[in-house]
């Protein structure tokens, strides 16, 4: 299978502080990778650096998408290639509805003109899957959304845009049991459609129903262990303590 995302010795800093200290990672098309680690290990930094968040600076190393070097590329170009990042706390944008925003994002992604009818139909399907009331579509993007609603709205966009690679940044944090199930159902759907996933999490609830190909443990800016989904069970049992001790 061909490589979708490849990180080679990636070093990332915020200001003077180095957060990621040489990450090597390869994700192949259709695979699901899980990145786990304690708070402050640099998990979210990795997700955001892949999307070229201006707060982070890549000081060393390279980033490849489908074999092309995108280390210097702008965020929107990366999105247009098919990389999608969900936000832990997506920003409210007053005056723009979730629906019309999703539509303009779709148009950015190369779909020239989406028929209103087709779009509405797909919205309805996705809302059904995510137990979202259709009225969400007309609400201002993330404005007055509860934590759970925000996460659902992110998964809604994921399913609508159907990118090549989705990076889920702590999509399960702060959700109650039912909401986790719903979100997980949405991710499963994306996976079924052949999507490639990098799931960033420090808990494992969202993974219960998902096929995981690889798991990586990130401690203090370095991947200290990579393995199969068995690692998840191990973490669930023992936490990250043993890795931290090694440091």
């Amino acid at each position: 299978m061909s490589s979708i995302l490849e990180l080679k010795n990636l070093h990332v800093s915020v200001g003077e502080k180095e957060i990621l200290k040489g990450i090597d990672l390869e994700i192949k098309a259709g695979e699901t990778h899980v990145l786990m680690g304690p708070n402050g290990a640099g998990k979210s930094t990795l997700g955001h650096a892949i999307m070229n968040d201006p707060r982070y600076e890549i000081t060393e190393g390279k980033l490849f998408f489908e074999g092309e070097n995108i280390t210097e590329e702008d965020t929107d170009k990366r999105a247009k290639r098919g990389i999608f990042l969900t936000f832990q706390d997506p920003v409210p944008v007053p005056g723009i509805s979730l629906g019309s925003f999703t539509r303009s994002a779709l148009e950015q992604g190369g779909e020239k003109h989406i028929k209103l009818w087709d779009f509405a139909k797909k919205c309805k399907e996705v809302c059904g899957l995510l137990n979202m009331d259709k009225s969400y579509i007309d609400r201002d993007l993330n404005v007055g959304f509860s934590g759970g609603e925000k996460k659902k709205a992110e998964i809604f966009q994921l399913l609508m845009l159907n990118p090549k690679l989705a990076i889920l940044d702590e999509t399960d944090s702060g959700l109650d049991v039912d909401a986790v199930k719903t979100v997980s159902k949405g991710v499963e759907e994306y996976q079924k459609n052949g999507g490639t996933l990098l799931i960033i999490t420090h808990s494992t609830r969202i993974l219960d129903n998902l096929n995981v190909d690889k798991t990586h443990i990130l401690i203090d800016g370095k991947i200290v262990e990579s393995g199969s989904s068995c690692l998840i069970a191990k973490i669930n049992q023992n936490g990250f303590e043993e890795y931290c001790k090694e440091e």
């Binding site: 702008d74 929107d76 999608f84 944008v93 007053p94 005056g95 723009i96």
Partner: peptide, 22 residues
């Protein structure tokens, strides 16, 4: 940045925020 991660250019993202504001 959030809007750019969905494929909007910096200009488009700012314009969208401004028209939403208006």
């Amino acid at each position: 940045f959030y809007l750019m991660t969905r494929g909007l250019s910096e200009e488009e993202a700012k314009a969208l925020i401004v028209s939403g504001f208006c």
